[in-house]
């Protein structure tokens, strides 16, 4: 499969802070590629550089074969973006939001009307077309943002924490829509804190922290290699701790419980 995004030694500095520290990765056409990691790991900064919104400090970054510094307009024409923070236009209704947004891509009006009808149906928002944004639930807002990201029929869909703060039902609906887009061949780049979300959607992912890529692989492989299939949870007390240290077993202390990573939880 052709490469649609490739980064070599990609770096972003804000003054003394190194937000993204010389990372390398490439995204193939048609796959769903994930960035997993905690807040402040550099995921969103990386996404913003791919989006041609935040200029890189150094390194090489090409999207759809074009340099991000040289061809931002051409690249952005082919991207659909679901940002982390909702930024729907509160001055407009659902329908108007899509209509006004379609103008930013210079989509002819009649074409835009057709696409909007299709997208409202696809996102199950037909009944809300004349609602003002304030009145929408969190899940509806996310769906509308996803509809908005699809207006220009993007080659690459960028999802920055697409389901953060949603209830399980709303989240599953979004996941379902993303999967059906993938079937249509849309390349997807996703950031998330949730391993569950990454394993549901991603073909391949990288785990980031402190601006660096720690590991890369398929979700199931990463789980097997890095964590083990099971987590045993127990109260933290000194005896258990010393026993685990003696056994050289991998574990993590969270508050006053211990998480023990293992493939054979039955001792």
């Amino acid at each position: 499969m052709p490469i649609v995004v490739s980064a070599e030694n990609l770096t972003k500095r804000y003054g003394d802070l190194v937000a993204v520290d010389g990372i390398n990765f490439s995204v193939e056409q048609g796959e769903c590629f994930g960035f997993l990691g905690p807040n402040g790991a550099g995921k969103t900064t990386t996404i913003k550089m791919i989006q041609c919104v935040s200029p890189k400090t150094s390194g090489k970054l090409e999207v759809l074969g074009m340099d991000v510094d040289l061809y931002p307009k051409e690249i952005k024409r082919n991207l659909g973006v679901v940002p982390q923070e909702n930024n729907l236009d509160p001055d407009f209704t659902v329908y108007e939001n899509l209509m006004v947004y379609s103008r930013y891509f210079s989509i002819p009006k009649n074409e835009a009307k057709e696409r909007i009808e299709k997208l409202l149906r696809f996102m199950q928002l037909e009944e809300k077309r004349d609602a003002i944004i304030e009145r929408l639930s969190g899940g509806m807002k996310r769906r509308l943002i996803l509809a908005r990201a699809l207006l220009n029929e993007p080659k690459i869909l960028i999802l920055d924490e697409p389901t953060v703060g949603l209830d399980p039902q709303a989240r599953h609906l979004i996941w379902d829509r993303i999967r059906s887009l993938k079937k249509e061949g849309v390349t997807t780049i996703l950031t998330t804190h949730y391993m569950e979300e990454a394993s549901q959607l991603c073909d391949r992912l990288v785990i980031m922290d402190y601006g660096k890529i720690l590991v890369e692989g398929r979700p199931e492989d990463l789980v097997r290699e890095q964590i083990g299939t099971s987590i045993l949870e127990t109260k933290a007390n000194p005896e258990v701790l010393s026993c685990l240290q003696k056994m050289k077993q991998e574990f993590e202390i969270v508050g006053d419980t211990i998480h023990i990573f293992t493939d054979s939880p039955s001792i």
Binding site: P83, N87, D91, Y104
Partner: peptide, 14 residues
């Protein structure tokens, strides 16, 4: 407050 500029610069506009 509305993040309107952020929304617009994700499109071909700068």
């Amino acid at each position: 407050y509305q993040k309107t500029f952020d929304a617009i610069i994700a499109t071909p506009l700068n």
